[in-house]
Design a binder for these strands. Structure first.
Lengths: 153, 153
DNA sequence: TATTGTTATACTCTATAACTATA
DNA sequence: TATAGTTATAGAGTATAACAATA
């Protein structure tokens, strides 16, 4: 990440830069949004990574940490800590997969589903606040453009 | 920043998430772009922060580190290192401001202008590569949306 | 030999506080 | 008392390598 900060002061030069450099605009916007996401996550007690893992587990039921890592593009070594935290909170169970005893079968618990539901309920308000400067149509447009950028073949 | 990695594997679940969550799409796209920017910066020997400072100095001629910090929203303590590197490369001079001897007057040198010109010349190709999945119109659209998001009153 | 989960480690970006010299 | 620059430090997020158990 470029060495930049969300300093308090509001410069007049940065907007000019951002207007001609999509990369700079993107990085700065991301920093602001990530900060807001962390703050929102802290409020409901579920870290961003934990939220993503629970959300995926709710969809697929149960899978290995390796699959979670690959699908969410979170490094294996990072996934360990996320799974640890979720397990400690009782949101997830870890059992050795009988079919491949190297792997864990990570399963979401009822408490995990409740925590996820609560966290999901806070999302619309978070989005409304963080992306409040954009209309719904613009938000969809932005998401579409970013998707194109991210998942281009 | 959320605990996520640009893992090599390409999951099928992340695109679904990104499609419904602009914040996630934004953070992931930013990580990829920042990585590309760092790689591009490393090639021409000018860090991203250094590039920004030189670019602003080329526009305003000379100013204090404090002004650079505020305008570019780079923390004071980070700006020290950037100015150190630029000075060591001979791209910038630091002289005490006679009017306020607490402050430096940071001035771009001819060598600094040459380095900036060279780095600027690499930008279009970097943008073409990094944002190649988007048309020029889409790129402008993206920049506009991000600007609105970043600098909303 | 390769893979899953794990641990340790290192590196970067960022944040904060303290110090100096000036104002 | 406040400000400009500096330094040191601590905390995140990320990346890498190595290890044990298993395949």
């Amino acid at each position: 990440m470029p060495p930049r900060t969300d300093a308090r002061a509001q410069g007049a030069y940065l907007p000019r830069l951002a207007a001609e450099r999509p990369d700079i605009a993107l990085c700065r916007a991301s920093a602001a949004v990530a900060r807001a996401a962390d703050a929102a996550a802290a409020e409901n007690g579920l870290g961003v990574g934990q939220h993503l893992v629970l959300k995926m587990l709710a969809a697929v039921g149960s899978c290995s940490q390796q699959v979670l890592s690959a699908e969410l593009r979170i490094d294996r070594s990072v996934m360990v800590g996320i799974a640890d935290d979720l397990e400690r909170s009782g949101f997830v169970r870890r059992e050795r997969d009988p079919a491949d005893r190297r792997a864990y079968a990570v399963t979401i618990t009822p408490a995990g589903r409740r925590a996820l539901a609560k966290a999901e309920k806070a999302i619309p308000e978070f989005l409304a606040t963080t992306f409040g400067a954009l209309t719904a149509a613009e938000r969809a447009q932005l998401t579409g453009l970013l998707g194109k950028l991210l998942f281009a073949e």
